[in-house]
Nucleic acid binder design. Structure first.
Lengths: 186, 186
DNA sequence: CTTGACAAACCGTCCAGACGGTATCTTTAT
DNA sequence: ATAAAGATACCGTCTGGACGGTTTGTCAAG
């Protein structure tokens, strides 16, 4: 009859807490820092509790992935609604999302978290699937070389931010964004 | 009196074999597949033998990194020698190297290997250093927005190849390359 | 006969997951 | 309205295995 047993049950909250903690840990300590022990403890839950919500570690990572993709899809959908031009619409929304990552509050979480995800073959496959889906969905409007190039450049920028390899100041970022947008219109 | 003791001693060969195996394993099984046991066994060497050549795991990864960077530097230097135009010369050489990765025999090794490297903070720092060095070296000729954009796009393509997320056919690749080269000339 | 190139056994740690339990919530039958 | 009956949400412990690294021993070449 431990104290922990008696606290209010709020499965949704705990679940989200676990995901947030996993993201934070992957940022602070790298992919190796995401252990079931560490995550559960930092989330104020026992390991058993963690494994109740996510039956194994991969399910946890999958949940993390779902979270990210969900937010991304949402941002893109919103952005696309405000874009009157059909051609390159998806590409511009994608650009906005990527450029926005820099400013977001949880940008840190996204960044190193994503590296961790990419090193997991199963998650790589899921990402591949996501890209394939979008390519099919917006093939009519966003398959030009210019659009593809713009998206690849955005990925490159995302990677650079991730690795903090280049440091690109704000004016440069804005100029780049403008040029990529014009690329998407060709 | 094991077999390995009796074979001709060729430490250089064994060392290289270990690096190759580590690259292959990281491709076939992801970053997690690169364990001292697995690498040494796949290379036909005992774990002790591996640790004789590389005192710890990080030294092995460092060796891998050195290998990659060495080849990259070599390719870039060669490419730059054949480019008469100063402005954007480094960027074009970088583009060539990245586009060449696709065709190389050991492209597989490069690909997922690199993911593994990126997830290791220490190697990330080394990569950052490499980028900073090149930026300083070629700041006079390759710091325009066009050049930076071209390099970022190349990185994006590299990432796409890595993840096999987009599949980009050969004509498209050529067109992209041409457009990136013209970007480097602005 | 010394030194470099390994082999083989071993150690301490860490970690994913299993397990058996307990407390709270929800539904159903009365 | 309420009590029984499950279902759900956890807790705390244990284990088996993997993994990085150490140590000690062995062999062959110079």
């Amino acid at each position: 009859m431990s104290i922990a047993h008696q606290r209010r049950k709020q499965p949704g909250r705990v679940r989200q807490q676990l995901l947030e903690v996993a993201a934070r840990l992957s940022f602070e300590q790298g992919a190796a820092g995401v252990t079931l022990d560490a995550v559960s403890q930092a989330a104020g839950v026992s390991k058993g509790g963690l494994l109740h919500h996510f039956p194994n570690k991969m399910a946890l990572l999958d949940g993390l992935f779902d979270d990210l993709i969900g937010k991304l899809d949402q941002t893109i959908a919103e952005e696309m609604r405000n874009d009157p031009v059909a051609h390159g619409r998806f590409t511009r929304a994608y650009l906005s999302s990527v450029f926005a990552l820099q400013d977001e509050a949880d940008a840190q979480g996204w960044q190193v978290l994503t590296i961790a995800l990419l090193s997991e073959p199963h998650l790589r496959a899921r990402w591949r699937q996501w890209v394939a889906d979008r390519a099919g969905e917006h093939g009519g409007t966003d398959s030009s070389t210019g659009c593809l190039l713009a998206r690849l450049a955005a990925d490159g920028l995302w990677l650079a931010d991730l690795l903090k390899s280049h440091d690109i100041d704000q004016p440069m970022r804005h100029e780049m964004r403008a040029r990529l947008i014009s690329l998407s219109q060709q």
